[in-house]
């Protein structure tokens, strides 16, 4: 690990001005620092900031402080009752030890698990812009099938962010100049394009202070994660779903996907195709056709295209079976 200067932010407003890399749970950042994939010169410890509350908002939603741990969030009674898809997604991720450390803000900012990103002897446009992409034409079993570019085919590894995307969560931030803003999760991430090293719309020194959930969604909540081990592994494909039935037809459907792209994936056309329809395998196939119309395998990850279809169909069949 490279040497770095350590400081502790005493209050929220000074954190950005300390001009260093924020560290909270550190479960991803320190891992990457040990490998010298990340080499910050200054670390700003934000763990003492008062950002650990979960409070109700005026519009019937919840505001989750950025430092609420993944464990505490998954176990929070209001999350378990009203946002089950989020609790399920959190519990499907990492291990007990990691969830006790990892925070809500940090989880959103996880880096990819692409092995070329992790291995500094290999080319990677995300780690070293312009060096090339080792995964294209290389070992790419875990890589993206949607929204890729010729520069990068990495996936975003978070489960939590997939549920946040489905729920239309809003990220609240404070910039180094003291101004604050709100960013819907749907506008928070960037596709790799020509600049895969830029993963979110956050500016330098901009601190995530909270993530806000709109009021709860009625219906069946599901989070299905397909992975190489039964526990403690990243998703090959994951599907988050909230489906509300009315009179034997799908009244409302929200779907978000993990393991498929550089960011949690959501496709309004897939959801629109389901609304007002009676559930059937033919309908679910049509939804998968829309989702995967532009899907492109890279060789080793070709299996993700049929796997995403099957997982989506299984989740929809399960979520609508009571109708």
């Amino acid at each position: 690990m490279r040497p770095f200067e350590y400081s502790r932010a005493g209050n929220v407003s000074e954190a950005g001005a300390l001009a260093g890399r924020f560290i909270a749970g550190g479960t991803n950042l320190l891992d990457l620092m040990k490998l010298e994939v990340e080499t910050p010169e200054k670390l700003v410890d934000i763990t003492r900031l008062p950002l650990r509350e979960i409070e109700e908002t005026v519009d019937g939603g919840l505001r989750i402080g950025a430092l609420v741990t993944n464990s505490d969030l998954a176990a929070e009674p209001r999350i378990r009752r009203d946002y089950e898809v989020l609790s399920r997604a959190l519990l499907a991720g990492a291990s007990g030890q990691l969830r006790n450390k990892a925070t809500t803000g940090g989880n959103l900012l996880q880096r990819t698990r692409c092995s070329y990103f992790y291995e500094t002897s290999q080319p990677c446009n995300k780690r070293e812009p312009g060096s090339g992409c080792g995964a294209i034409g290389g070992f790419n079993r875990i890589h993206a099938i949607l929204g890729t570019s010729e520069k990068c085919i990495a996936t975003h590894p978070s489960d939590m962010a997939v549920a946040m995307r489905l729920l239309d969560a809003v990220v609240e931030t404070l910039k180094a100049d003291g101004s604050s803003r709100e960013i819907p999760v749907g506008e928070f991430y960037r596709l790799p394009g020509e600049t895969p090293q830029i993963e979110s719309v956050l500016d330098q020194g901009e601190l995530i202070t909270a993530v806000r959930l709109p009021k709860p969604l009625q219906g069946e909540h599901r989070y299905r994660k397909v992975r190489d081990r039964a526990s403690y592994a990243f998703a090959l494909v994951s599907v988050a779903a909230v489906v509300r039935m009315d009179g034997g037809r799908i009244a409302e459907a929200r779907l978000a996907f993990g393991g498929l792209a550089h960011m949690p994936w959501r496709d309004a056309a897939v959801e629109a195709a389901l609304i007002g329809q009676a559930p059937s395998m033919a309908l679910f196939d049509k939804a998968a056709d829309i989702l995967l119309a532009e899907a492109k395998g890279q060789g080793e990850n070709d299996f993700k295209i049929p796997l995403a279809r099957r997982t989506l169909k299984a989740v929809l069949a399960d979520a609508t079976k009571g109708a």
């Binding site: 350590y6 560290i23 550190g26 479960t27 320190l30 891992d31 410890d45 763990t47 464990s71 007990g96 030890q97 990691l98 006790n100 450390k101």
Partner: peptide, 19 residues
């Protein structure tokens, strides 16, 4: 490397002593 910090288990290899 699991330790308890304030009663909760964590991976002590993935956190800095100074924190």
């Amino acid at each position: 490397c699991t330790m308890l910090v304030n009663g909760r288990r964590i991976n002590s290899c993935l956190t800095l002593a100074v924190m």
